[in-house]
């Protein structure tokens, strides 16, 4: 346990903005989680693959608010990497075999499950002043890492990422062989 320092780490992107009171709100919502929580996010996907959370990506005029569908906290299958909250008491570390700068918001959930613990999306609105263009598309490197994730976490209940806007009735598209048929 990293008792000398903090209890909770907020790993955030450099272009995230947190309003006054966010820390207090976040710690209050974190306090509602079961002891098994290892990682939490503010925006991600629920276990059915639905986007989940309260969040503003400033590239989009409307805000994400899935409060009509979700009663928070919600068990997550992946997080957007913009904000990942880590329970420091659990000694969690990201699996460094994953290179690059994407999909660690998925992997940390898979790692939590592998440890027999849990991952949650909490209700803690914040803003992402993101400038990455929407024209971004998964490349070969991404495909390689995505496949590695599937190969490594074979027993995972679900593997998903917020970079995919997947229709609910087509969950198989998330399988690497369907997503990147040429590379497989």
């Amino acid at each position: 346990m990293e008792a000398e320092g903090a209890d909770i780490a907020v790993l955030t992107h450099q272009d995230m903005f947190f309003r006054q009171g966010w820390v207090e709100l976040m710690t209050e919502k974190i306090s509602e989680l079961p002891d098994s929580w290892v990682v939490a996010g503010v925006i991600g996907k629920d276990m059915e693959g639905n986007i989940c959370g309260k969040f503003h990506d400033t590239r989009i005029p409307l805000q994400f608010n899935t409060g009509h569908r979700h009663s928070f906290p919600v068990a997550a299958c992946c997080f957007d990497e913009a904000v990942i909250i880590v329970n420091l008491k659990k000694g969690f570390r990201f699996d460094e075999r994953l290179d690059g700068f994407d999909i660690y918001g998925t992997m940390c959930v898979l790692q939590a499950w592998e440890r027999g613990e849990t991952a949650w999306i909490i209700e803690a609105f914040c803003e992402h002043y993101c400038t990455r263009p929407f024209t971004w598309f998964p490349d070969e490197e991404f495909a390689r890492r995505w496949k590695w994730l599937w190969d490594t976490y074979k027993d995972a209940t679900k593997i998903d990422s917020t970079v995919f806007g997947v229709p609910k009735n087509e969950p198989d598209i998330l399988k690497p062989e369907n997503m990147f048929p040429e590379e497989m």
């Binding site: 903090a6 790993l11 420091l88 570390r93 990201f94 460094e96 075999r97």
Partner: peptide, 16 residues
Amino acid sequence: SATKGLNKLLALWKLR
């Protein structure tokens, strides 16, 4: 990489 960087940050929490 992200994972290596984040792990370094997590380790930094031991510092005051």
